[in-house]
Design a protein around this nucleic acid. Sequence first.
DNA 1: AGCACGCCGACT
DNA 2: GTCGGCGTGCTC
Length: 793
Amino acid sequence: MQTDKPFVYQIPPKFEDMIQVGMRVSVPFGNGNRLIQGFVIGLKAGNDFSGKIKEIKSLIDVEPVLTEESIALAKWLAHETYSFLISCLQVMLPSAMRAKYYKQLVLVDDAVDPAVKEYFSSSKKQILNEDKIDPALLKQLMAARTSGKISLEYLMKDSLVEKKVQVILNNLTAKSYKIEKDKLRANALNLNRLLDYLIKLGDSAIEQTMLEQKLGITSAVIKNAESKNWLKRKAIVKRRAAYKQSDFVRTTPKELTSAQKDVIVKINNSMDENKEKIFLLEGVTGSGKTEVYLQAMAKALKKGKTALMLVPEIALTPQMVKNVVGRFGSNVALLHSGLSEGERLDEWRRIQNGRAKVVVGARSAIFAPLKKIGIIVIDEEHEASYKQEKMPRYHAIEVAKWRARYHNCSLVLGSATPSLESRARAQKGVYEWLHLSERINKMPLPEVELIDMRKATKKIDDNVDFSTELRSEIALRLKRKEQIILMLNRRGYSSFMMCRDCGEVLLCPNCDISLTLHLDSRSMKCHYCGHEEKIPQKCPNCGSNKIRYYGTGTQKVEQELQNLFPKARVLRMDVDTTRRKGMHAKILKQFGEKKADILLGTQMIAKGLDYPDVTLVGVLNADTALGLADFRASERTFQLLTQVSGRAGRADKEGKVIIQTFNPEHYALQLAKKQDYERFFVREMNVRHQNGYPPYFYTVQITASAKEEGLAAKKIYQIYAEIKSSLSTKSIILGPTPKAIMRINNQFYYQLIIKYKKELNLDAALNTILQKSQKDERQGILISIDKEPLNFI
DNA sequence: AGCACGCCGACT
DNA sequence: GTCGGCGTGCTC
């Protein structure tokens, strides 16, 4: 906090002509003059700092990586979200541009302890890793340092690395080729083949790995040939491609329905006026929102501007990429978490230097360094993943609004089930409200059936996941060779171990949460801290062997499914099967190619999938999220069910949706069954109004946490007293209370929530708390301030 | 994040 | 009188 402000540095004459605002520089900082990475956020003649100033050591960039826009945006963001300016500047850049710092110990005098000598046995310079080293040895090393026998150096490395590949160049002439060919044994097959290839290569070059694959040879052969001077090797910089252009078929704009035309005319007109405008595009699933986005983006490009589109991470499926890359070709840059750091960096560079004019990405892509933005599209605008949960706690929609204002451009928020906040703003005319209320092919929405699991469980045994209705529907579709999507709502729900004799539940030793059973690794895992232990055979409390698991996980359902339908081919998609890079896309591709009959997964399968042969969607447990003490529970449940229902019967086949629930009469389920967003909106707004929740109130959440429960509790009450005195009587403070999961990784969490409509002093009060929080940090008390949090538990 | 300084208790 | 742990302030 104290360091989160600009520092003045002298520009050495040699950099005077080169340095520009927005560049990264390396500067000496602090007492040891260790080098750190900084951003140039302003240049001035003269100096208003009274102390001695240091010189910039070197320039890291040749041209600025931050624009005037990103610096202004970072300043606004820091203030808006109570974050450090430095972390807001960092978030603008790909992580590969962040400097990595490390320490290095150098042995200067050999007369040291044997243990220390041992440490330096391989080299006189050792990178110090304070977490991994034995504390006793560390103490010895530090003692040797004070006596001057070891020196400590601070290193900074820009992890920005370009990808280099080895290419092979021909080094033979026709004459030398003949000589070498004659010298070679006829049965030296690999060398002969290589020799022939090289002469054919002429003046062009080929990547070494490609050549090895092509000729079926190994690097040893190439090395051999290199020593014979047949070829030359050269390292060249290669762009890491986020996607392969050749994988996509170019598409042309589709014919629009009259409803789509009405919508696009309004967006296009506003783009022609070049002024900031926000639209809420409310369109049922299958109403052709994507085509509207694409044509609006094409319009922006036609005007010589650029386009930015955000989609939730889980919706960044191959299908969405296919749509956009198919339409805009190599103009598209892709930014999502599936890319490696290097791929991300290269995509970022393409945007920065203007080669990519269309950006599609998840949350952080909102900071993409596009110039002259003509339109920003946020698809599935209600998605919680647009809010970042760590510092800086920004919401992508708020950043989008800022950028739309800066560029005087249009912002389109699209969803079948808009967030109540957005929908309410459309009502008030803050956003222009656009509708697409019919599905494009005039197909009726799928029939939705609610199954009361209270009755179903009574009929069969007590721990069952499939009602008879769902079973028979699955059997029917399997017979017809149609596909099925089954969703398991995992939120706040997973399988845990409980003893049937004494009721003991297996808990994580570090967190206040039960351990989850994982069948693949045959272990119990904590989803919060990563703790892992064996599956118990006996109850640790009473020793009974009647310890069983309860609840439902995808793995368990998969097994059950296999028992019920032994011939069905099931694909499982959850965090466990998609952790590896590219697995997500791979599973969906397999399903798309009809290599499986049933796709079983968690929420991630609800978004954006469009498979014509899916005629049945089953939701195994619709209401596990309803039980959560979060006022958004109904909204989330409604949104999820509406979305997943939209996956059924999208082409010529009629679809059916079966939702299993323990609360069939709940309005969120009843209205999801009818797919009636508007009525849900009215109903839910009523509930929010009565209970005083957003959008009728603004909210701020303050959390205090510490290793000792007492410290965290004391701090939150102290903050409570402070806040209370600066608020008007119209505002309400909820709490302080311990968080629903009070302990995570042995850190205790307490929170309070402020609900207000208008508080002129709140900003100042929160800033004071933020300023003071640094003192508490020394005692290990962490305080976080979250404006408009999306998770209250 | 990392360093120095200074206060204070414990020990020689 | 001195060593070292720990809280505190500062970094252009």
